[in-house]
């Protein structure tokens, strides 16, 4: 069997081309890593992102996790996204941990004071997955203290549902997400939350072309954590995080995001540092059709 690194080494040039060399569309991304707002990918556009999280452990070895996101706007009301996850734990090993497939649906045609979005995800990862893209139930830092060889024995096949609520007010975005996760084995439903608030640094665009001007930056804060499970819906033995977030939307179509995060209680990782590079490609669907010989 080929190692994940062999596979990654074959994928890497493609990702590099997509991220840095391919034709692009200027994105206007929010700075969040965990919270979702109600905006979907533009129909027919593809976004490729490479994300990473460094975390310090209270017990056990520190780690760096990373995931690749491939997001496609199917229609104006449906966006689908595929993730590949992996991680390296210091003084341990580097492993591929699994994949996720998420879908977001916009049920309402128009904008409202509060805009709902429905989110459905299936994930097939092992217990060594450490991307911390969501924190639910009684997830705590100690869960990740074991060695990779032990953690990877556990298989997590889960369905995740989210209700995403998002509002805009005077340039601010306020997003509230409620999560419910069910492992398809006999585990109980687990719950969590994510909150986000952000704002562009300038609301008006300048007439000149610029890379470093304030309108290209957005900053904010997100907070997320677990709310226990069906048997114990409570804050006891749960972990919570507070993280400032910054995004830089470059005119070239790339978006860079950085977020230092801080554990809010003794069950949380002490410190997280996340970063992300993403790029959006317009007209991907049409290009695929042309490539396969369809009508122009």
């Amino acid at each position: 069997m080929q190692s994940p690194f062999f596979t990654l080494s074959r994928i890497a040039p493609v990702l590099f081309f997509l991220l840095f060399l391919g034709p692009s569309l200027a994105a206007q991304e929010r700075p969040y890593f965990v919270a979702y707002d109600h905006y979907l990918e533009e129909p027919g556009s593809l976004e490729v992102a490479v994300d990473s999280t460094f975390a310090t452990q209270r017990t056990g070895n520190d780690f760096v996790s990373y995931w690749t996101e491939i997001e496609y706007g199917v229609t104006g009301w449906w966006t689908t996204e595929f993730y590949l996850d992996g991680q390296s734990t210091f003084r341990d090993s580097t492993i591929f941990t699994g994949y996720r497939w998420e879908n977001r649906f916009r049920p309402l045609r128009r904008e409202h004071w509060i805009n709902p979005l429905l989110y459905v995800e299936f994930e097939n990862v092992n217990g060594a997955d450490k991307i911390l893209k969501e924190v639910v139930g009684h997830d705590v830092a100690a869960d990740k203290a074991e060695s990779n060889s032990v953690l990877r024995q556990e298989r997590e096949r889960e369905f995740e549902l989210k209700l995403i609520l998002s509002s805009n007010w005077k340039g601010w975005n306020l997003s509230e997400n409620v999560l419910a996760v069910k492992n398809i084995n006999n585990s109980p439903w687990e719950f969590g939350y994510a909150l986000g608030v952000s704002r562009p640094l300038a609301l008006k665009a300048s007439a000149r072309r610029c890379t470093l001007c304030r309108e290209n930056f957005a900053a904010g804060m997100e907070m997320y954590g677990g709310l226990g499970d069906r048997h114990s819906f409570e804050l006891k033995d749960t972990s919570h995080y507070l993280a400032p977030v910054v995004a830089w939307n470059l005119p070239s179509g790339m978006t860079l995001r950085v977020s230092p995060g801080f554990g809010l209680n003794g069950n949380s990782q002490r410190f997280l540092l996340r970063w992300s590079v993403s790029r959006e490609f317009a007209g991907f669907g049409a290009a695929v059709r042309r490539m396969l010989g369809g009508r122009r």
Partner: peptide, 16 residues
Amino acid sequence: VVRRGMPVWSKLPEAQ
């Protein structure tokens, strides 16, 4: 015009 493929552009600030 979400059902016909035009995205919501309220993600841009009002001034823009």
